[in-house]
Design a protein around this nucleic acid. Structure first.
Length: 644
DNA sequence: GCGATCAGGT
DNA sequence: CACACCTGATCGC
């Protein structure tokens, strides 16, 4: 849950992602994306009443967010009061106090956040300075550098405060694989499974409402198999997503939900309840996208810090255009519900990001180019200050360069994995097991392949809180080595497999972890401790995959001999843990002594990044101390040495 | 009955 | 415990 209270010190008349308490008096509301924890109070009776009395109050968000929000009848009362702002189109908004008539102008620019469909960051420019509210985001390496509206000339604008989520600004998350790595790993895992037979199915255990679309579309595209979901009306006007999902349960890839989905899975059943017609039991594995997974393992942390100027690099080409998912079907620049339902929805042209389109909303004044006053570039050295979110807090300004992490993909592979699978029917005694060198997914293989990602191809995450992935760039790589990044990045490449066994029908379990291998990060600044005010940029998604064995009723979660594969993909990086079901009995019989739980099982050594330098404890403490006191922190261009 | 909060879960 | 939810119990209106 975001700890941001909704208001920024510079523009307290605006409330973002919080709609309760003091936010009830805001002159304007902003919603960065449609995740519940950013919508607190949004449908409360108190706010609804406020709206009824204050006709000038509006909610600003991206067109896709508006679409998603209004799909739910619970928010339909907002319909006339939501103003969708085009991405990357500076727009002037008047903040009017209806009581006094006082008016304040602010220019807002929505920047794609890559967290989930419609997610954006808000860049505000006004008399109280330029501030950036990131919301949850996940950006690939180089994307920030390509955001023209964040720059003035070759430099990042003089942003005095950045409101960000620092959930993943923690050493324990130093190696979240890139979206592409995760995706590749998952693709191979899924391929290895669903090609075994029509009865081998995959269940994507998705927790959040949105953010997995990128994964769905890629799976669908790769295998020509639409993903089964419970509902898809929210995507009715987003052909690039709609085309890849279905409500038809007859598919081998599922992302359907059920309150007791996990129980179903333990029984080797899918949440939608579908079973094969001829009685052949389904073989279900689950893939759980999760970023947190990467921080759960108590592994040594390795954070690399390096400083880079905040200059854009023009030298490298930026051919890879940001390609958010969820492009709305609409006529011209106006956002409309649906118009041509079935035409050529997949024309490439529709997938291109809309840039600089002018919203034709009343009372809004898109500015092209943006107003000058606060758009000056920072003279001299680039700097970025980060302010805390609380209104009562003093902002902390960091006259530093960005936190820039780069990664380099090297390939070391790790050794082998051993996967042993046992086969047998559920009732068979252990002694009857036979080894199957089956086709159970072996992580190592999947993720290893990814190691081929070109150096530049790495996507790095900037942040974001979760697994959303849809907006992120497709599988492109960015190239630049010296682009500007706001946060840390990660990539991963090799796969590790811990051996385990599991079983079930034919189960086996193996744990594989996708670990990131190398990355070079630039100086990594931890902003978090200074209070949760600075919530920030880091997101990754994790995907867990469970290979469940068929049926056993007595299966106890803890006793499952599961294995886990971790791979990351989707909205963020995703870990995949594979588990297989095994009941206690089976487990004992199989003498699965080595397996513990998915967590531990996958807790193998993660190679540290070559050239990585760990911040020294003292160094970090110093930074924390400065952050806590609001003192400026200037990071010098030198690397800290590693240790720890 | 609804909302908010808390506890618990994945 | 972050994530992003979900369920259920309790309390207040």
């Amino acid at each position: 849950m975001s700890s941001f209270e909704g208001q920024m010190v510079e523009y307290p008349a605006i409330s973002i992602d919080r709609f309760d308490r003091q936010n009830l008096m805001a002159r304007a509301y902003f919603l960065s994306h449609c995740h519940k924890d950013h919508m607190k109070g949004l449908r409360a009776p108190s706010l609804k009443r406020r709206l009824e009395c204050s006709l000038k109050v509006h909610l600003y968000c991206s067109p896709v967010t508006k679409e998603l929000l209004l799909t739910s009848p619970k928010y339909s009362f907002w319909e006339k009061r939501i103003i969708a702002l085009e991405i990357e189109t500076p727009t002037q908004i008047s903040l009017i106090d209806e009581a006094s008539g006082e008016k304040e102008e602010v220019v807002v620019t929505l920047l794609p956040a890559g967290h989930c469909p419609g997610s954006v960051m808000f860049l505000f420019q006004g008399n109280n300075g330029t501030v950036l509210y990131t919301g949850d985001f996940r950006l690939a390496k180089g994307e920030v550098a390509r955001m023209e509206l964040l720059h003035s000339g070759s430099r990042v604008k003089d942003i005095q405060s950045v409101y960000l989520d620092t959930t993943f600004c923690d050493p324990k998350y130093y190696q979240i694989p890139s979206r592409m790595e995760c995706l590749n790993g998952i693709l191979e895992l899924v391929r290895s499974w669903i090609t075994l037979s029509p009865y081998h199915v995959v269940w994507l255990n998705c927790k959040a409402a949105y953010g997995y679309e990128y994964l769905f579309t890629n799976l669908s595209e790769e295998f020509g198999t639409q993903v089964h979901v419970n509902k898809l009306d929210m995507f009715k006007n987003m052909p690039d997503i709609l085309h890849h999902i279905t409500m038809d349960r007859h598919t081998q890839i599922h992302a359907c939900r059920h309150p007791r989905a996990e129980e179903f899975f333990r029984w080797n059943r899918l949440p939608c309840g579908i079973v094969s017609k001829n009685g052949t039991p389904l073989q279900v594995i689950s893939i759980k996208p999760s970023t947190m997974w990467f921080g759960e393992r108590s592994r040594k942390t390795n954070v690399i810090v390096s400083l880079k100027p905040l200059c854009r690099s023009f030298s490298k080409s930026t051919e890879t255009k940001y390609k958010p998912l969820g492009m709305l079907k609409r006529a011209r620049t106006t956002y409309l519900e649906s118009e041509d339902e079935d035409e050529d929805l997949f024309d490439d042209s529709q997938l291109l990001p809309l840039r600089h389109k002018i919203p034709n909303q009343q009372s809004l004044q898109p500015l092209l180019p943006p107003p000058k006053p606060e758009l000056q570039e920072c003279p001299g050295k680039p700097k970025l200050s980060i302010a805390s979110c609380r209104t009562d807090n003093v902002q902390t300004s960091l006259l530093t360069n960005f936190i820039d992490c780069e990664e380099s993909n090297s390939e070391d592979e790790e050794q082998s994995e051993t996967s042993i699978s046992f086969h047998g029917d559920s009732n068979s005694t252990p002694l009857q097991q036979e080894e199957l060198y089956v086709d159970t997914p072996e992580w190592k293989i999947f993720f290893k392949n990814n190691a081929d990602i070109p150096d530049d191809g790495s996507e790095n995450l900037i942040s974001s809180t979760e697994a959303g992935g849809s907006q992120s760039p497709r599988l492109f790589s960015d190239s630049d080595g010296d682009s500007t990044h706001i946060s840390s990045q990660n990539s991963s490449q090799s796969t590790h497999i811990s051996e385990q066994e599991s079983q079930g029908w034919d189960s086996q379990s193996d744990t594989v972890l996708l670990s990131s291998q190398e990355r070079n990060c630039g100086d990594f600044i931890f902003l978090n401790k200074s209070g949760s005010q600075i919530r920030g940029l880091a997101t990754a998604c994790q995907l867990e995959q469970n290979i469940s064995g068929p049926k056993d009723t007595s299966a106890d979660l803890k006793d499952r001999a599961q294995d886990v594969n971790t791979a990351s993909v989707s909205g963020g990086a995703t870990t995949v843990s594979c588990e297989k079901c095994a009941n206690e009995e089976e487990k004992n019989l199989l003498n699965l002594s080595t397996s513990v739980d998915s967590q531990s099982s996958s807790d193998f050594e993660i190679p540290s990044t070559p050239d990585a330098e760990l911040p020294k404890q003292e160094h970090l403490q110093l930074l924390y101390a400065k952050l806590a006191t609001g003192e400026s922190i200037v990071i010098e261009r030198k690397h800290s040495t590693s240790s720890s």
